[in-house]
Amino acid sequence: MSGYAVFEGERRIALGGRLEAAVAAQARLAEAPDAILLIFDPEGRQVDFDLRGGPWDIARRLGEVPEQAAPRGRGRPKLGVTAREVTLLPRHWEWLAAQPGGASVALRKLVEAARRQAEGPDRRRAAREAAYRFAHALAGDRPGFEAASRALFAGNAEGFAAAIAEWPADIADHLRRLAAEAFETG
């Protein structure tokens, strides 16, 4: 997926991380206080940043200021393991208990295998949704929007490219970035 994008009308003025986008938006507003800017996250959603203060203030609010590393304590490191309840039938518990490492290890392996199997379809779906959200916000009233949307959700890369060919270059380029994984196969 793409980074955070700052648009002023049809023109993309920045593309990068959250902090880069926020600082670029702040700089543009310093030059042109009446400018209307839209900022999009990598999932194609419009986001707002608090642009008050200087870049350091923005970085602090975004949590991008490095914290001083705390000295590591003794003992095992925290792995982020969360205990929750799982409801299964007795035969499922029996099977899990018979697995090497026990129920927890077997469940983690099953979840990881399912995540890997669904990774491609999930990435394609997320790319389609991100591209659609962005296109709807910046090009929903443009000729070819409906054709582009149909092609996007049908996985028709050629139809999608043809539908957005006449759109402003920065909008079409960002849309191609967001949609790139939507057209991958495999």
Rank of each mutant, 00 (worst) to 15 (best):
Pro90Gln: 09
Pro90His: 00
Pro90Val: 09
Arg91Asn: 05
Trp93Gln: 00
Trp93Met: 05
Trp93Val: 13
Glu94Cys: 02
Glu94Val: 08
Leu96Pro: 00
Leu96Gln: 03
Ala97Pro: 02
Ala97Gln: 14
Ala97Thr: 13
Ala98Gln: 11
Ala98Asn: 07
Ala98Thr: 10
Gln99Ala: 14
Gln99Met: 15
Gly101Asn: 01
Gly102Asn: 06
Gly102Pro: 02
Gly102Tyr: 02
Ala103Val: 08
Ala103Leu: 12
Ser104Cys: 03
Val105Asp: 09
Val105Leu: 03
Ala106Glu: 03
Leu107Lys: 09
Leu107Tyr: 06
Arg108Lys: 11
Lys109Met: 04
Leu110Phe: 11
Leu110Ser: 05
Leu110Glu: 12
Val111Gly: 02
Glu112Lys: 13
Glu112Asp: 13
Ala114Asp: 14
Arg115Phe: 11
Arg115Ser: 11
Arg115Gln: 15
Arg115Cys: 11
Arg116Tyr: 11
Arg116Pro: 06
Gln117Val: 15
Glu119Asn: 01
Gly120Leu: 15
Pro121Glu: 12
Pro121Cys: 06
Asp122Gln: 13
Arg124Leu: 07
Arg124Glu: 07
Arg125Lys: 13
Ala126Glu: 09
Ala126Pro: 05
Ala126His: 00
Glu129Tyr: 04
Ala130Met: 03
Ala131Cys: 08
Ala131Tyr: 00
Tyr132Gln: 07
Arg133Asn: 06
Arg133Ala: 08
Arg133Asp: 00
Phe134Gly: 07
Phe134Cys: 07
Ala135Trp: 01
His136Ala: 14
His136Leu: 13
Ala137Trp: 01
Leu138Gly: 05
Leu138Cys: 02
Leu138Arg: 04
Ala139Ser: 09
Asp141Lys: 12
Asp141Asn: 13
Asp141Cys: 08
